[in-house]
Write a protein that binds this DNA or RNA. Structure first.
Length: 921
DNA sequence: ACTGATGCGTC
DNA sequence: GTCGGAC
DNA sequence: GTCCGACGACGCATCAGT
């Protein structure tokens, strides 16, 4: 199969009338000679109509459907489904609900009403209501859950409508902490005291130990952490047992002095890590504290302020419950663990909607509609959750347990795993209070979207540990900043930040860094965590350079080098070893620290050819590129991507790879990150050997003049590369110091240049609702090229970047006049690409792209290059409106085909196969 | 055993 | 991957 | 300059549904 796509890439048939390809154009317009006419929209157009909403009425659409090429049944099916998935909120009504509930949100009174709302859909039976609390709790876990809860539709409480506002501009509208709607308040009061009374849970213990299992194993493989693991383990189990008692005592005695969880406010002026916390020492951190922090962060736009907020939360955690720092960090970043362990939730939006719907008595369509209205599922979930009451409130969520639960989710695999996951999620969801629901759902979606991510988190961690040190001379001090000038304190923070960031970049594993930080303090961190073969480090990235001139302005008088920018996949190769390289333990990591070792058995097998005898251990920075070993040609990225990704066996590798090595980050146990590139490169060349077609050093040239750079750029493009990487050779700027500057290199690509790269004029034929930041307006559009021969608009790509906010506002408004009920019958597209709103073909936009690709999902130039693949754009972005062009004057399918074939990478392939592409014309 | 839907990683 | 917004 | 989150095409891996 991968073979198929590969061959199809290689063997582009230039023939005009390859058998079935060019079809006998349906309509009479068919012009025989037009081999170039495309083969109209087979499946899509035809099927699309049949499944379209019933109410559609557009007259012209019913044209020659009969004459369309027959569409596979399967695609018809798909159509229906997809169609349904994107049904707009407006059309909820015509969804297949088969029940009353579907249409109008039912107002729901929250207090009184008797227990249940049984969703007809789920056929819940009222009788179940009589179950005892305990039973219903059990049921939750089994996914029979929903009986115990009342639910309602959103939009119930009129007061609740802060959300629309939020969605419009989340940042500008601060969520007033105190004035949470009364309803929400009403949910919580009793919950807090209740904490673990009825909970004789084996679950805390169980979940803790369980999740510790794998981690323990992992950690034990790292000597450096062994000691910590032990102590941590003990502590945590003890704590878990003690928790129960302590908590109750605490609640009885201290409760009045505690900040109510729902009012936790990390933004309080003069925040006191203990007095302003909403839990006590040793107590597990309530998830609500974190959720409140995230809320506050989300409502903030200034990064330093966000960092302040988060750091205050961290200070409390450090002071009260340090063992919860690690899970807190993971939850903030939406990570389950270090990337190279490969943990995945396997759950995303679609399944989440099912989970939320099932839990709150809503249909999938309702949930989808609510999510669309609010621009985000998280907010919709929070609303839905708020409208729901339970007979028996589940125990409140704790940071540590939630993180453990998420890891458990990731561990579920195999048959019926999705349902298991959904029911587990539902059990978590019903325990959510206030904004917990929103952030839980966002976590599960994989994006927190609060405007704070890794860099700021590290900064917050630095601030927190500087101010409330967990270890070191000031350990136990709650606020080091007191009694220090703010300048002095700032210097301390900066120092901590640099140490922490540097350590993290060279050892991006919170499992290692956080415990060491807690135990030894920031200053000691480098002694406990350092660059180690076997642990991937953060790679150096590059900034785009808009022109050759920019390179010279950036590097002033410094010497720099240019390297070809190969179009492959980043590969960080680690070979451990003390006396001799232990090749059997070599690993290959991706740009994002994923473990790709089993993807490249062929590469690993030939490692010996690369390492000279002087090497015992090393870390290499490389690009793995698909390579045609027969014709000695670099192949396009699209070919590389067809390689098997897991557990490939060297024998079955079909796409060969040449690895282009361009940097050396560690040699014989010594980190080279603080060596200049010139030195690193010298060592690279001294200690490693090229091997044609297998291991090669990236082609490099130390350019001094603009002309030279320009020529080298052109050369690289002719050599099937994307452009150049430009790097300083000497001095600090030449260090591999990600913490100081992660994008220290420049990349120069043709398509960045004015007049370079491909530019296309495409017609807007549809629009998608924006999400998150773009909620409330269009966030993306479907573009098409015009095919005069078939009188069709063929989908070319979606586009969602290059717009200013102003552009989006403008287009959202202006395009309203072109909205049509249903796609024209002369639109050709793939069902899965169907936009939320169809538009009459009127507007033409200029877009830019890096490449044109053969596409399974788009229809441009369909049949011209491949029988059933169209052409699409790689990295498409909006450039400007072409007011001067009418839709019919857009770039044509034929032009697209020519552009595709004109690409260097394609031409190279052609010549390699001795096909003269001039034949095509 | 097969297919389509869904997730997730690459760029 | 590209891009724009906020700082 | 940095950081963040909108959004893109594509292909493999995995699981639900048949």
């Amino acid at each position: 199969m991968s073979q198929k796509s590969i061959t199809s890439f290689f063997k582009i048939t230039p023939k005009k009338e390859s058998d079935g390809i060019v079809n006998h154009q349906k309509e009479d317009k068919s012009s025989e000679d037009k081999s170039l006419t495309e083969e109209t929209s087979p499946p899509a157009t035809a099927t699309k109509r049949s499944s379209k909403r019933l109410r559609s009425d557009s007259v012209e659409k019913e044209l020659p459907s009969a004459s369309r090429s027959p569409s596979p049944v399967t695609s018809a099916k798909k159509k229906t489904v997809k169609r349904q998935r994107i049904e707009s909120s407006g059309s909820e009504a015509d969804l297949p609900k088969g029940s009353d509930e579907a249409t109008i949100p039912v107002k729901l009174e929250r207090n009184d009403s008797p227990k249940t709302y049984s969703s007809p859909k789920t056929k819940r039976n009222k009788s179940k209501l009589t179950k005892t609390n305990q039973e219903s709790v059990k049921n939750i876990e089994k996914n029979e859950s929903f009986n115990g809860y009342e639910s309602s539709n959103e939009s119930n409480s009129p007061k609740e409508n802060k959300s629309p506002k939020q969605s419009k501009s989340p940042k500008s509208v601060k969520t007033p902490k105190k004035q949470k709607s009364p309803k929400e308040q009403s949910v919580s009061p009793n919950e807090i005291p209740k904490i673990k009374t009825e909970k004789k849970s084996p679950s805390p213990v169980k979940s803790v130990t369980k999740t510790k299992g794998p981690m323990e194993k992992f950690m034990e493989s790292n000597n450096m952490m062994r000691s910590f693991v032990k102590s941590e383990k003990i502590v945590s189990t003890q704590d878990d047992e003690k928790d129960v008692k302590h908590t109750n005592e605490a609640n009885d005695t201290i409760q009045h002095t505690l900040v109510p969880e729902a009012e936790y406010n990390p933004g309080k002026t003069k925040y006191h890590p203990i007095k302003d916390a909403c839990w006590t020492s040793g107590q597990p951190v309530p998830y609500l504290a974190l959720a409140r922090t995230l809320e506050a962060v989300e409502a903030t736009s200034a990064r330093h302020k966000m960092v302040d907020l988060l750091s205050n939360y961290f200070r409390s955690v450090i002071a009260l419950t340090p063992q919860d720092l690690l899970p807190s960090i993971y939850l903030c970043l939406n990570q389950l663990g270090p990337a190279y362990l490969g943990l995945e939730l396997g759950i995303a939006e679609t399944y989440l909607m099912k989970a939320v719907g099932g839990c709150t008595g809503r249909s999938l369509a309702q949930v989808r509609a609510a999510a669309q209205r609010l621009g985000e599922l998280g907010a919709a979930a929070q609303q839905a959750r708020a409208a729901q009451r339970m007979l028996c409130a589940p125990a409140p969520l704790q940071v540590r347990k939630l993180h453990a639960a998420l890891k458990d989710l990731a561990a579920i695999t195999g048959q019926a795993s999705v349902n298991k996951k959904i029911s587990k999620i539902q059990a978590l969801f019903v325990a959510c209070r206030h904004s917990e629901a929103k952030y839980l759902i966002r976590s599960l979606e994989g994006k927190l979207r609060v405007g704070l991510a890794e860099q700021s988190l590290l900064q917050a961690l630095a601030l927190a540990t500087a101010r409330t040190p967990p270890a070191g001379p000031h350990a136990g001090c709650l606020d080091v900043a007191e009694g220090m000038s703010s300048d002095d304190f700032k210097a301390v923070v900066d120092e901590h930040a640099l140490v922490i960031k540097t350590t993290y970049c060279e050892c991006p594993n919170y499992e290692l860094v956080v415990p060491a930080l807690l135990q030894h303090g920031a200053r000691e961190l480098p002694r406990h965590c350092r660059l180690t073969p076997g642990i991937p480090l953060k790679p150096m990235l590059a900034h785009p350079a808009r022109g050759v001139h920019e390179i010279f302005s950036r590097f002033e008088n410094e010497k720099f080098t240019c390297e070809w920018k190969y179009d492959g996949e980043r590969a960080q190769i680690h070979v451990p070893g003390e006396e001799a390289p232990r090749l059997a333990h070599a690993r290959i990591f991706s740009r994002n620290q994923e473990d790709n070792t089993t993807k490249y058995p062929d590469v690993l097998a030939r490692l010996p050819a690369l390492l000279k005898s002087t090497v015992t251990s090393c870390v290499l920075d490389c690009e793995a590129v698909a390579y045609d070993t027969v014709n000695k040609q670099i192949l396009p990225f699209q070919v590389l991507s067809t390689r098997k990704r897991k557990d490939a066996s060297a024998a079955e590798v079909r796409v060969q790879v040449c690895v282009f090595v361009f940097d050396l980050l560690l040699l014989n146990g010594r980190s080279l990150c603080r060596e200049p590139l010139a030195e690193r490169r010298r060592l690279l060349h001294d200690h490693f050997a090229e091997s044609a077609g297998e291991w090669e050093f990236a082609r490099a040239q130390d350019c001094s003049g603009a002309e030279e750079v320009q020529q080298f750029l052109e050369q690289s493009v002719r050599g099937s590369c994307e452009g150049l990487m430009v790097k300083a050779l000497h001095g600090e700027r030449a260090h591999y110091d990600i913490a100081r500057r992660s994008r220290n290199w420049l990349k120069l690509k043709k398509d960045y240049l004015e007049g370079g790269g491909d530019s296309i004029d495409a017609v807007v034929i549809g629009a998608y609702r924006g999400r998150g930041r773009r909620a409330g307006r269009f966030g993306g559009f479907l573009l098409a090229c015009y095919d005069p021969a078939g009188e069709q608009y063929q989908s070319l790509c979606k586009i969602g970047t290059g717009f200013s906010d102003q552009d989006l506002d403008t287009f959202t408004e202006q395009l309203q006049q072109h909205v049509i009920d249903a796609p024209r019958n002369y639109y050709s597209y793939e069902a899965s690409q169907a936009p939320d709103v169809w538009l009459a073909a009127a507007c033409v936009w200029e877009v830019r792209c890096a490449d044109l690709s053969l596409s399974p999902a788009h229809r441009a130039a369909l049949g011209l290059i491949d029988r059933d693949k169209g052409v699409s754009l790689r990295f498409p972005r909006f450039v400007r409106v072409r007011e001067d062009k009418r839709a019919e004057e857009a770039t044509s399918g034929e032009q697209i085909a020519r552009m595709y074939l004109a690409q260097d990478s394609v031409r190279n392939q052609h010549t390699a196969h001795k096909m003269d592409d001039d034949d095509f014309y």
